[in-house]
């Protein structure tokens, strides 16, 4: 399946992947509205990590594992892997127990504390390629066929 891969050497630490992720998962999908006017702004599914003032930076996100630890840990069945391999959280079903947060070795499940729902990359079902990848100005994120690791 197609997955998102990060290329650390060329990540510029701009955090636009996070901006795009939030925007894509907002009601309007418009950055200005999403950040300034909508209630319950989504939280980003990708996480930019930085070190040494940004000398090292990269964006991590869900690997859509072949055998997802989050799915195995989920007590409510909110996390399912669909036929194309995409691991998604049904936020209606999620009870916010954070078992997935405990289990994911990639640290790729976030806690939306406001909504008390777990949050993770859904590979942007409304797009042909994920928002973070499209927003990366330096191709530090690529979306291509590949294995989990």
């Amino acid at each position: 399946m197609k997955r998102i891969y990060m290329i650390e050497d060329v990540c510029i630490g701009c955090h636009l992947c996070e901006v795009a992720c939030i925007t894509e998962h907002s009601q309007s999908k418009n950055p200005v509205k999403a950040f300034l006017h909508e209630e319950n702004r989504p939280i980003s599914r990708c996480t930019v990590e930085e070190w040494d003032g940004g000398v090292v930076s990269f964006s991590t996100t869900c690997r859509h594992c072949d055998e997802p630890d989050c799915l195995r840990a989920c007590i409510s069945g909110a996390i399912q892997k669909n036929d194309s391999g995409v691991v998604r959280i049904d936020t209606e079903q999620c009870v916010g127990c954070w078992s997935c947060v405990m289990a994911c070795p990639y640290g790729a499940v976030q806690r939306n504390l406001k909504k008390k729902k777990a949050n993770k990359c859904d590979l942007c079902p409304d797009r042909t390629s994920p928002a973070c990848v499209d927003a990366c100005p330096n191709r530090a994120l690529v979306y291509k066929e590949g294995s989990q690791k």
Partner: peptide, 19 residues
């Protein structure tokens, strides 16, 4: 980190032109 996140082999030829 690379073992966890980097793709097998080199990432080249991304299908779509990046901005």
């Amino acid at each position: 980190r690379s073992a966890l996140f980097a793709p097998v082999g080199k990432v080249t030829g991304a299908d779509e032109q990046a901005r």
